[in-house]
Design a protein around this nucleic acid. Structure first.
Lengths: 109, 109
DNA sequence: CCCAGCTATTCAGCATTGCTATGTACCGGT
DNA sequence: ACCGGTACATAGCAATGCTGAATAGCTGGG
């Protein structure tokens, strides 16, 4: 889409991935493909992998290596308790920002 | 509030400021104070000034120096035509992201 | 007069995050 | 053997917000 999305994704992409993982465990390649399907047309491969490594190092997810029939082994990530807590915090932050922006949008015109 | 807000503001703060300016002209100090009032408790002084200079250099706003009764002269910014177009684009981008996140939020639980 | 405090702006250096580009590796079909 | 799809990793870059300090004008108290 453009540069605006890229900048807006900073800070939200992490939450998006955590939200995906809260529904079901998933691996990087799968998440990237799914996001592109959803219209995030220019999310880069590397971005998701780097993000997954980051949240793993912060202890928000558990990882399991699972062999694949179609290629190299997958690193399947699943949200743990700490990750769930962090995700809730993310939703609170998102709500706050979202409300402020809706107010501005209405008042601004 | 915390680091989450900081990262989420990347990409949205610019739109927020443009939205404020779409309602009325304003200057940096005023905008910072208003944002803090709205709950953006840890927005730094310097951040807004840097952002204003950026959007000025991109030609999204017009600037006028206005003497103040209480201190040094103010730099009053107002949104021009290009800024309005950019703001509309921002709202479209925001809507896209917002919709995806609401979907995730509902489906995720 | 001088200093503290509020108003108002600017700037250098840093941390975080997403993108680009590239490399590695496993597998099946031809 | 080779190619395309699957799957992950990484080094370097750009954009953005924060930290901390400096500059400057104005007003009121001591």
């Amino acid at each position: 889409m453009g540069k605006q999305v890229t900048e807006m994704l900073k800070g939200t992409l992490e939450g998006i991935v955590l939200a995906i993982l809260s529904g079901r465990p998933a691996y990087g390649y799968e998440i990237t493909a799914w996001l592109r399907d959803q219209g995030f047309s220019d999310i880069a491969e590397g971005t998701i992998y780097a993000l997954l490594i980051r949240i793993e190092q912060r202890g928000l997810v558990d990882v399991e290596k699972v062999p694949s029939e179609k290629g190299p082994p997958r690193k399947v990530y699943s949200l743990n308790a700490e990750g769930r807590a962090y995700l809730e915090e993310f939703w609170r932050t998102w709500s706050f920002l979202s409300e402020r922006l809706e107010q501005l949008r209405e008042g601004g015109n």
